[in-house]
Design a protein around this nucleic acid. Structure first.
Lengths: 135, 135
DNA sequence: CTGATCTACAACCATTTGGTTGTAGAATAG
DNA sequence: CTATTCTACAACCAAATGGTTGTAGATCAG
């Protein structure tokens, strides 16, 4: 997205990882579990029909997305929720919501104008001349 | 996922698709674009370095996730934002936020108690005997 | 010490994803 | 009518995902 100069790059990948992590029912369930209670990796694995290694991988995905952190305790690894990731995702969706509302306001403004001879269509085509693209 | 009985099934897949759709920078950019302005598929494709077909696929992913809808106009296909999907995603993350806050409250309550001889650790292990999983 | 448990990680496999090119149909422009 | 534009879709490919089994190192129980 627009990678205008710098800085967005890493953040984009970070956001990709965040939403990717949420895009799996098992992982969402794990996040919910470890938010409420305390679970070791094997404690989590016992909850699902899949193998221990599979759950281990899911936890790893959540960890890379900063949604979860592991803490060693004896021979166990305790998985705990990391609220930062969740907040980031929420804030991002909130931004989209804000953009949406701004757009609604703009349209309301247009409709509220004294009908300046123009056609009814919103008429905001592309041809925006934005610098760059990249995703 | 555990698919306890019924009902959650479709919703889970729907949510999977939602977050999956957001887990790509180009797609997030498309959502932002079509929220603000009006774009045909080729109008969008012109913004990115990838091929037309690639952008077409991204739009299709967003469409399956109910984040976007296409409307035929002459030989063009106008892509417009569908706010419902965005709202669903937001509401879901809000639920997680609520769970998190409830947990924080619970812990605050525990700390506020008159120190009932228990150890300092929160001590909420699994062994919860929770009925099923999905909620 | 011995055995059981918890974890990490490698290797493998099937499917999905994100991209490409190419072909073909519909609508518009001249 | 012909040429161009916009779209749809198939076929293909490399890489990532989500799962498996197997092996091996740490830690705890007896």
């Amino acid at each position: 997205m627009v990678v205008d100069q710098l800085g967005t790059q890493l953040r984009d990948e970070e956001i990709d990882r965040l939403f990717q992590a949420f895009a799996d029912t098992t992982r969402r369930d794990i996040v919910r579990r470890v938010t409420v209670g305390e679970y070791s990796v094997s404690g989590l694995a016992a909850l699902y029909t899949m193998s221990f290694a599979a759950v281990q991988k899911h936890v790893a995905v959540l960890e890379r997305a900063s949604l979860v952190a592991k803490e060693k305790r004896g021979r166990e690894q305790i998985v705990r929720a990391n609220h930062d990731g969740l907040q980031k995702a929420r804030r991002l969706l909130d931004e989209y919501e804000i953009i949406w509302r701004q757009r609604a306001d703009r349209i309301a403004d247009l409709l509220a104008e004294t009908a300046p001879a123009g056609p009814g269509r919103t008429h905001e085509n592309q041809q925006d001349g934005n610098r760059k693209v990249e995703g």
